[in-house]
Design a binder for these strands. Structure first.
Length: 289
DNA sequence: CGGGACTCCTGAGGGC
DNA sequence: TGCCCTCAGGAGTCCC
């Protein structure tokens, strides 16, 4: 589910609500995530202060004292919820009923914080994970070491794109989804970026023209920034940590729009769907060349 | 190098 | 009500 904008929204909310708090206890309801949770390592954070929270592409990094870093990836359905007893809005949350002390069956890990507050890792499909590193090894970890530049960073440029696409026979969509090339994009945003750039998603990368590359860079940054601004996309059940939904899904032009009429003025064609690298791909045959 | 099938897991929604 | 099928924001492996 969560791509860069969603993870960024969650990170900002985490900084506001849980940064600087002490972990009082940890409860594991299910160790079997994408990787099994190491109980020995996770219990080491009990008593430690959560000093800093950062995001790297789709990963969240939690920095504790004693040089311990917790790495969380949300996979397809991972979510973090913050529960604060004093705040009434959580009582009415669709998700968590504090008065009944009812846990959701997909709450996999519960971090108990100061003042009766909790941070809950909930994940229906269990494709996400929680791993531990130390401060010095985190950036050389299996997950972070080969990530490409982030799409909103200055080094994600037309020049970089041009150099990378040269000689590549893969489809442009496949390349934009590849975290080693650019880290943080996923299926939704790549569909949207290619629609705005008027490029058919199955075009071979080395056939993309210079003016089209410039559009890719421009729309990638524009779409991601706008999505972050509107709280990310809430398809099905994405929410930020306080249960708030984003609204960027209202601005989707192609994702999930099979058989709808193309949103471009002067185009009356239906949005089509195909599969690229096994992922749902939506496009307008008339508008995307 | 490239593409496709398949894997992890659980639930929603459609068809009958 | 129920059963069976397909599909889903990710990402890795294996095989041809």
């Amino acid at each position: 589910m969560p791509e860069l904008p969603e993870v960024e929204v969650v990170k900002r909310s985490l900084i506001k609500n849980v940064q600087n708090l002490i972990i009082k206890d940890v409860k594991i309801n299910d160790v079997k995530l994408r990787y099994h949770i190491n109980k020995k390592e996770i219990t080491k954070i009990i008593g430690l202060r959560l000093k800093k929270i950062k995001r790297k592409s789709k990963f969240l990094l939690f920095f504790f004292n004693k040089n311990i870093v917790m790495l969380i990836h949300l996979g397809m359905t991972g979510k973090l919820y913050f529960v604060n007893k004093k705040d009434k809005k959580y009582r009415t949350s669709f998700y968590y009923d504090i008065d009944q002390k009812k846990e959701n069956k997909h709450d996999r890990v519960i971090f108990y914080l100061e003042k009766n507050q909790k941070l809950i890792y909930n994940d229906v499909r269990k494709f996400g994970f929680i791993k531990f590193y130390n401060f010095n090894s985190i950036h050389n970890s299996l997950h972070l070491k080969s990530l490409g530049p982030e799409p909103l960073e200055k080094n994600f440029t037309f020049k970089y794109l041009k150099k990378y696409l040269n000689g590549k026979k893969r489809s442009i969509k496949d390349i934009l989804m590849d975290q080693k090339f650019v880290s943080g994009l996923g299926n939704i945003y790549v569909n949207e970026i290619l629609f705005s750039s008027k490029i058919k998603p199955d075009r071979k990368a080395d056939k993309i023209k210079v003016f089209e590359m410039k559009k890719i860079i421009y729309f990638t940054k524009k779409i991601l920034n706008y999505s972050i601004k509107t709280g990310g996309s809430s398809i099905k059940d994405f929410t930020s940590i306080n249960g708030k939904k984003g609204s960027f899904q209202q601005h989707f032009q192609v994702y999930g729009k099979k058989d709808d009429i193309c949103s471009n003025i002067n185009c009356n064609k239906k949005i089509l769907k195909m599969s690229i690298s096994g992922r749902a791909t939506f496009y307008c045959l008339k508008c995307q060349k």
